[in-house]
Amino acid sequence: MRGLACVLMFQTHCYDSWLSPQARKTAFFHVSQLGGTFPAPLFVFLAGVSFALVTDRLRAKGASRNAIARTTIRRSAEIFGLALLFRLQEFALGYPWSPWTDLLRVDVLNILGLSMMLMGVLCWFTGEGSGEVAVAARVRRRTILAAFSTATFVALLTPPLWTTYRPHWLPWPLESYINGVHTFDKPQPWLFPLFPWSAFAFVGLGVGLLLLSAYARKHADAGVAALGGAGILACAASVWFDRIPVQLYAVYDYWHSSPEFFLMRCGLLLIVLFLVYAWCRWGWAQKGFRLLDPSEGQMQHRHGEPRTSDDFSGHARSVGDSHAHERRAG
């Protein structure tokens, strides 16, 4: 899925960078740019899934909740620090044309680091000291519930924090982490504030832990298919909620800050998760590929004979034997 996100990101930015103003007015260009809205949710969502894998593995090894929180939050802080360094690099590359305010712009890497810190705090609250199987299952269920609840809370708070209840009293560099206002008079949809972007990470955390549940481990195909079905239902629910006449918010913007749009994107993420799983489980990914085919004679012996896989495995065994002999001799 990260590979798909990278391909979509490259396609969007690279294709856009090389076009003339006239070419940007075509219908094909506008369709091609739709894929550019998907990489960021994918990256943040997958950060949550990876976080679930890491914390579950640490818990299985008997790590305490304090140790898990310390490890994950420290790593998240490193990512946030790298995000700040990246902003410094971008400013230096664009100097003297880049405004100094770009140093404080909230980009996707910033929000990845902060979201992972928040997930570390959440896992500390839901964790327990014991690493027993029964305790681990209980902690997993509790964390799943907390992760999805937090994502819902963030999504529901996003519209007022972008409009009627903006934290104007904060300096703009801090408010920008809440709603992406930056130096402008209103939040910018092209930035990555905690509301709503951190919610994708918490959804990923919940989904990742669901995939690690006892049922999903025994019935992987059915488990992932159920998530794909949930994604379809989420998309349908998004459309239905958008069409009902009752609105909870004074200012409603479906395409930027609404919980309905967040629900739609989460549904699409789950559908993509199923499609990627199906591709790897039953699709062409099962066929695999070899960068070099020994049968075609692309790699030759010194005497011109094609190498075979036995040659390489034999060489690997001989290297391993020599290393083992050196260790025994030492």
Rank of each mutant, 00 (worst) to 15 (best):
A47E: 02
C6D: 14
M299H: 04
T55L: 12
G94N: 07
L82K: 06
Q11V: 12
L268Y: 01
F289W: 13
W97F: 09
P160K: 15
A285Y: 07
S313A: 14
R105A: 15
A222Y: 00
I271H: 00
R74G: 02
A136L: 15
Q298F: 08
N179Q: 10
I144V: 15
K186L: 15
D221L: 09
I178Q: 13
L233H: 01
R281E: 15
N66D: 10
D310K: 10
L88I: 11
G48F: 08
L109H: 05
Y165R: 11
L85S: 06
S258P: 00
R57A: 15
L82M: 14
R265T: 07
L8F: 13
A60L: 12
L205W: 05
G113I: 00
L268T: 04
D221A: 13
Y165P: 00
I68E: 12
H13D: 14
A278Q: 11
F153I: 07
F148Y: 12
A324M: 07
Q247R: 13
S115P: 03
K186C: 12
G228D: 01
G223D: 02
L109A: 08
L227R: 02
F51G: 14
I111A: 07
G297K: 01
P189V: 09
I271G: 00
L34G: 06
A40P: 03
L118D: 03
L269D: 00
G81E: 04
N110S: 15
W124N: 06
P196Y: 06
G283C: 10
Y177N: 07
W169S: 05
G314A: 14
G120A: 03
T183Q: 14
S20D: 07
T101F: 09
A92I: 09
F45P: 00
N66P: 03
A5I: 05
D293K: 07
R166F: 01
A136T: 12
M119A: 12
L161F: 15
L170R: 05
E296A: 12
H168D: 15
G62H: 09
F200L: 10
M1Q: 06
R70C: 02
L292M: 08
R74N: 04
L291S: 11
R281D: 07
E90L: 12
T12G: 11
H30C: 05
N66W: 10
L84I: 11
Q188M: 13
I144S: 08
L145C: 13
A250I: 04
E90S: 13
L170S: 04
F200N: 06
H219T: 02
R317M: 11
R217T: 06
V246N: 00
L270P: 01
T72H: 03
P21A: 08
G223M: 03
G180R: 09
D293P: 00
I144K: 08
P173T: 05
W279G: 12
G314Q: 13
R328Y: 06
A222N: 07
L291I: 13
L112M: 14
R265D: 02
Q300I: 04
W255E: 06
F195C: 05
S98K: 12
A60K: 15
A234V: 00
F289C: 09
P189S: 14
L210T: 05
C280K: 15
S130E: 15
R140Q: 14
A40Q: 15
S313G: 04
W240G: 02
W169D: 01
L191N: 08
W97M: 08
L269S: 03
L292S: 05
P294N: 04
L156P: 00
Q300P: 01
A316E: 08
R2H: 10
P21Y: 03
